[in-house]
Amino acid sequence: MSTTRDSLQERIAVNIPIRREKLTPLLLVGPALVTVFLVTIGPMLWSLWLSFNRWTPSSITYQEPTFNGIGNFAWLFTEGRFWDSAINFVYYGGVGVTVQVLLGTALALALYNYVERRSVRIGLLTLFAVPMMIAPLVAGRIWQLLLLPGGGAVNGILGMVGNSGLPWLQSRWLGLTALMIADTWQWVGLPLLIIYGGRASIPDSMYEAAQVNGASRWMQFRRITLPQLQTLIAIAFILRFMDAYKFFDKLFIITRGGPGTQTELPTFYTYIVGFSEFNIGRAAALTWVIGLGSILTMLLFWRFMNTEGSV
């Protein structure tokens, strides 16, 4: 009896890292992976299948999903409302995210370089993080109040300094700009914190070495600060860009896509197609188009992280 056990032990002795713990990590990781499969991956795969089906479950004659090939995608690419939302996304993502990242970078560097007292720096960092902690929907409500065309604080203050104010929320580009301002208020903190952390981790000796060699401030910025921060700036940019794909709450409360449907963004339009027109196949196709855009951005992110090496 004991010989059998010994030889068994001998056999399993070879090449297994801390033998008895082979199962432990799988037991630890398993529940999380299964959960992610159940609440995220599984539903998404089903929605991928749905995107190739016609399914309008709310219509009076209820019907099962019926396969219609790439019909939903074909519809999508001829639908003007989708293209409008895509153009809005390009404007919102291109201008809004760029402003957020550049502003965040400038603020982070100014805060690190030109505010000497650590307590003030930390206090300001905390203040700048406060908007991120507030529900986007609530932030939307607050900005809606501020931007009311008559009686809103923004136009009110513009009026006090002799400006007639702007018809916020009453045109496509002003509406999108209003969304951008509200989102900037809420999220500049993210690039700001990332860049601030990056700047704080550049060793002073790098700058001292440059100063000894007579490099000007501008040269130090060009040759040290920017190269050291460029990966983080890219990451901040892409993180915010991914969020732009998901942009929903503030749009829902501030403009509701209006006037008309002019300020819709892709996620909001998907919501309309899915939950107000109940055309589930089309909505699923839309989510996958948005998802693929997101994945492409993600791959960019991945490649950047791998080639630049840091983080």
Partner: peptide
């Protein structure tokens, strides 16, 4: 015992402890 040998054995005072954690 923090690494498991791919091959070979280790013993203390003649007692094989290769498989002991």
């Amino acid at each position: 015992g923090l690494e498991t040998p791919t091959e070979g054995s280790i013993s203390f005072d003649g007692v094989d402890i290769t498989d002991r954690p």
